[in-house]
Design a protein around this nucleic acid. Structure first.
Lengths: 161, 161
DNA sequence: CAATTTATTGTTATAATATAACATAACATT
DNA sequence: AATGTTATGTTATATTATAACAATAAATTG
């Protein structure tokens, strides 16, 4: 089997079912370690986030969840907030949308590359960017508590067309 | 007169009235050069943005504007969109708020450092960060169209308390 | 200059995103 | 079972933003 040349291709031809299961399994583990509860509802929301596998809005998730329930907005927002705090999903400020975290547990979370055409997203793990930012902020004496880097543009596949 | 040790101090003891006038004058110039119209309404919105001199929401601006008119939301959003496209204000995705651009005309717009305590904001002009991001995106073949970097934390003044 | 087109602003209504506040239920520990 | 805690359900509403169309002002052309 050939190696994918980049993350975007990886995204296109991955085994989706397995990828969801992996993410959920890892989430169980992480929650167990942290002593926090991945309840059925939270787990289901996380599953939906991964099933979409691209940035997805809270109300979209709500509809998907609703197929089997009568959940209302606070339900989904609470679940998403929990998952965010647990480091299992990210909120994308430029999209008002959510995405499963590609590397939960990691200290650093790299730039998000968001394709404006196909809505695919890749989470890079680029220490260099965070380092560059750290240098600037230190220079002016600013104490960082959180950091978001969102890059919009065209993924390799969408540039061709 | 002593040199300020960093941008945040600069922010604290600047001549506010003069700073607003400078920004407006520069805006006039830029619009003239670009052949776009800085109408009285747009100019007034820009003036309010600078008067606040920290990230300010669209509805806050609307209220401030309303003191002399009956403006409704589209009015303010249209003005803000125009000012954004003209490169005169930035929208902060993490705050749903707007701030006057510190260096209109520049090609690059650096990281925004947002103090969670006093809501002050500094726009750095850090080529290094943009360079680091460019390197990462090139590596995966992603074509950048826009870029946002928002850093939250504590400014030097607020760390002391 | 009047006529016409284009750009801007006004107005009404509503969409999209998110949270406050309180009620109920589940769970965990005694 | 009694108690405290965490999680979920429910109602209402806040906040942010835009669509669609009407009226006005400014620029352009004949």
């Amino acid at each position: 089997m050939e190696k994918p040349t980049n993350q975007f291709e990886q995204f296109d031809n991955h085994n989706h079912a397995a990828c969801i299961e992996t993410a959920l399994g890892l989430a169980e583990q992480i929650c167990r370690n942290k002593g926090i509860r991945l309840t059925p509802l939270r787990r289901e929301v996380l599953r939906l986030v991964w099933e979409n596998h691209r940035p997805v809005g809270a109300y979209q998730l709500l509809e998907q969840l609703r197929l089997g329930s009568q959940a209302k907005p606070p339900t989904i927002y609470r679940a998403l907030n929990f998952l965010q705090q647990a480091g299992l999903v990210h909120r994308l400020a430029t999209l008002n949308a959510y995405i499963g975290c590609a590397c939960p547990g990691d200290a650093q979370h790299g730039p998000f590359l968001i394709c404006n055409r196909c809505q695919s997203l890749v989470e890079l793990n680029a220490t260099s960017v965070n380092t560059a930012i750290a240098r600037c902020t230190e220079a002016v004496g600013f104490q960082v508590s959180s950091l978001i880097v969102e890059v919009h543009g065209l993924c390799p596949g969408c540039q061709e067309r």
